[in-house]
Nucleic acid binder design. Structure first.
Lengths: 258, 258
DNA sequence: ACAAGTAGTTGAGTTGAATCAAGCTTGCTA
DNA sequence: TAGCAAGCTTGATTCAACTCAACTACTTGT
């Protein structure tokens, strides 16, 4: 478990860790920043102590000062409803940026909590802002990340407003599969970092429904599940149930493609 | 109808229209750009011929080249599902920016269609990008708009995944009310620019359900409806049904507040 | 001014997912 | 390693919203 969590982390840990040598840099900095630019970015990034499962990276209402890149582990972001219920708005895997939705607020509009032992790179926003002025590529990268988040959110709205339970879960699994694949893990066998409860919360379904659909998908030979371990037996069929074509699941951005 | 649509438009129409004299500038450019900055922005903005009801501002897949500010009228943005159904992701009222979710794509990820006669200011993205490099305030303004959109999207997810039909419609009406108020219209009496069908599509409800809830709200003396004309009789109660506090409906951004 | 189509309302019946309830499994800790 | 709590699964029942259907009220075009 610990070894799996480390796979996505930087090659050399400790104080000497640099963006330039980080195995994630091609994902969290997909544009071709030149070496000098990377070096500048490197200098403002703080490496933090790992978060333990259940620790908060930040809480809704906390003073907004930094954005974060996940290095290993995973996070859930959630907002609170008036009656104290939580609504999960996102799960974050290694290389993904967290906290950009706080940019124009004095405080974070969501809470972010570790689902397992998790390490992040902290990027103080005020310094990022200064740096963005000098580095057009970096600035575009931030625009790009935000714009991707907006697009993903629209897809999520579609899911929540039009898809039934089976389609939601198929979409969720196919999406996770693509994200793991992109990060060099298997697209077919992976471990869910979140509970059934959290999946249901995120997808707008009751836990029981999540459980039932998992069982149904196993009967249909689409997946094989053992606790949190998932094996996708028929990826194509799963994507068909999801009602999406491959490219919709994780659309490569213009900048990555070029 | 036409006169109402014009209220939000620039004070002087025609070729001489300038951001500086536009009654919307405090909304679409809420930060304190200095006069020189506004002048620079002014030079890159194109005023377009009004769109007629049903005209597209752009279509999903169109080459991304500009973002737009609505001057008068209204737009709906929508994505297409695989089976050709549309999912409305947003309605846009005067002063709101449209098209920012295309920033890191070569093409718009959504379509945008006029709900009535609508005028927009076109801002060519390549030139905005150059300008953003020189004007930190403008750059922050763009970050800010995108980040607000992300926050709104999260609230929409909460609505779609946790709220029932009554809560959804109350939230929708309370939100529109706040947006009209902010633009100098009445918060209590306004005209819905969209059909019941479009409201249902947006909120993840059947048309019939929208209609029934409208009727129920009238019986409860929360609102009075006559076709597309809505009068809010008990705003406080409506907000209570919506399950939000006033500030959540249209959260002022840090930049506007400061 | 009228016909025809579109948008909105209302009622009846159906249904997919929620809720309630109970049993099972896993993992922690004392 | 026994005992307990939390997470997960499965079944039975309920219910909010959907679908289908019929009717009414507006538009719009000729």
């Amino acid at each position: 478990m610990s070894s799996q969590a480390q796979k996505g982390a930087c090659l050399s840990l400790g104080k000497e860790t640099r963006c330039m040598t980080c195995s994630l840099s091609s994902l969290c900095l997909p544009l071709s920043l030149n070496l000098e630019d990377i070096d500048q970015l490197d200098r403002i990034i703080k490496r933090r102590q790992p978060l333990k499962k259940g620790d908060h990276l930040f809480r809704q209402g906390d003073n907004f000062d930094s954005v974060y890149a996940v290095r290993s582990g995973s996070l859930k972001n959630y907002i609170m409803t008036n009656d104290g219920e939580e609504q999960i708005t996102n799960f974050h895997l290694p290389s993904e940026l967290v906290g950009l939705d706080g940019v124009d607020c004095s405080s974070y509009p969501v809470s972010s909590k570790a689902l397992e032992t998790t390490t992040v790179c902290e990027i103080p926003y005020s310094r990022l802002q200064n740096l963005a002025q000098e580095l057009p590529d970096l600035r575009n990268q931030i625009f790009s990340s935000m714009s991707k988040e907006i697009r993903d959110d629209k897809q999520m709205m579609l899911l929540l407003s039009k898809k039934n339970a089976e389609e939601r879960i198929a979409t969720f699994l196919a999406n996770l599969s693509s994200r793991f694949k992109r990060r060099g893990y298997s697209a077919y066998t992976f471990r869910l970092p979140m509970s059934r409860n959290e999946i249901g919360n995120y997808l707008g379904l009751a836990v029981e429904t999540v459980s039932r659909v998992f069982t149904r998908f196993q009967t249909l030979q689409l997946i094989a599940v053992n606790g949190k371990e998932v094996h996708i037996t028929d990826r194509q069929q799963l994507q068909q149930v999801a009602g999406v074509t491959e490219c919709e699941i994780e659309q490569p951005s213009k900048l990555i493609a070029s």
